[in-house]
Design a protein around this nucleic acid. Structure first.
Lengths: 223, 223
DNA sequence: TCCAATATAATTGTATACACTTACTCACAC
DNA sequence: GTGTGAGTAAGTGTATACAATTATATTGGA
């Protein structure tokens, strides 16, 4: 398949396939409880079964598919309830992240955060949702990384992946990009001022707001 | 290798190897930054490279090894700092779990919890640390499952794995088993009474206590 | 017609083979 | 002695082959 011909970023087929299938599960291309057949996926992608198997094994660990020995794997997608739950957990952990990140963030990371915010401003004016979404992800990842906690970063980065679809929809609702920009400004300012409480509050406010918005979307799409 | 001859529990070689290596990383058999060579592991275990590769790919997702393309994987073990961080995150999420689990726990699960507790009592008298440890793990897993949140269960179960070594050491310290038993009694009673606040408090007290105890152990072993 | 038993197909699980990339060694030039 | 480069070895990445298991279809009997 042409998608994989170039093998960008030095990634292995396994990694590319993993990311592709994860994306497809999260975006509901693979429906819940659907069966995934290795050989079929392999043929569709023009590769052998080996990297597909390895990718599926990874998805299994992420909880996105369930393996029934000798019978196959079935998709266990992210339900609205799952997203709701993940947001709740994220809120709890993001509070910890805020504290650690403010305390430990390097000047370089602070500059990154500022740069990302400024790009956000730019693309918000241009209304380029795709770019904003990507910057949004990176903004939070810089904060996670600054926490200097490998597992905290790991958990929160994972969460971001799982709620990706919802975040995308949320951002596309009328007026949300401008709101989100303001919220990110507050977060940035708090980090620049090294104000733990302000940062925590701003982050939690931001996520609660996203969650609330997401909740609305879920309701709308499921009813 | 004889370990895998019987293939217990219908598990695939991949799964068995995954669990084995994870155990070995967590218990520091594989040292940090050590390189893992597929072929070597495969030979040691008397299997082909295929299931070993698949297992390693899973470990990668868990963050226990890091893959450098075409060069190999290196062990990224759980440091004392990691364990400290995981305990902190666990505390935050366990509070959420307590609430949901009390609300949603079925009578069957409640009975399981009670049964496990009673076995704990029994083995505490017998001072069978290994059994107590296993029951301890199951006790908390019943609570996680009762939350009816797939991802909460997933995250907390993972955490338990990562801090396994520390929990084991902690439990082996003088007088800790008896303390832990009392703490579990309080948790059980709160669940039986369906008292969310009491359950939350008891759980958090229990984990903080474990954490504190673990912290002491870390200090002792690293200095 | 319906059920059971058996053959057949489909699919996963594991092993092996080959390709590709990176690391290492040793000779040769300077 | 040191640096450079070809050649070799080691190791990962991917494809294929075969074994084991499970699902499906078919046939024969009641």
């Amino acid at each position: 398949m042409d998608l994989f011909d170039q093998k960008k970023e030095n990634k292995s087929l396994t990694t590319l396939i993993f990311e592709k299938i994860r994306e497809d599960i999260i975006n509901d291309v693979y429906k819940n409880d659907e069966k995934i057949i290795e050989a079929k996926v392999a043929e569709e992608m023009g590769v052998s079964r080996t990297p597909v198997r390895e990718a599926i094994k990874q998805l299994e660990l992420d909880g996105l598919v369930e393996n029934i020995p000798n019978r196959g794997v079935i998709v266990k997608g992210v339900t609205p309830q799952d997203i709701e739950d993940i947001y709740t957990m994220r809120l709890a952990i993001e509070g910890i992240a805020a504290k650690w990140s403010v305390e430990r963030m390097s000047e370089d990371a602070l500059k990154d955060l500022k740069d990302i915010y400024e790009l956000m401003e730019f693309y918000t004016v241009k209304k380029d949702i795709e770019k904003i979404f990507e910057l949004n992800t990176r903004f939070h990842e810089v904060i996670y990384k600054a926490s200097s906690s490998r597992y905290l970063e790991h958990v929160l980065t994972d969460f971001q992946q799982f709620i990706k679809s919802t975040r995308k929809i949320s951002l596309a609702t009328e007026g949300r990009v401008e709101e989100a920009l303001k919220e990110h400004k507050k977060i940035l300012d708090a980090f620049l001022a090294k104000d733990i409480k302000a940062a925590t509050d701003a982050l939690i406010y931001h996520i609660e707001h996203s969650k609330c918005n997401a909740g609305k979307m879920v309701d709308r799409t499921t009813k």
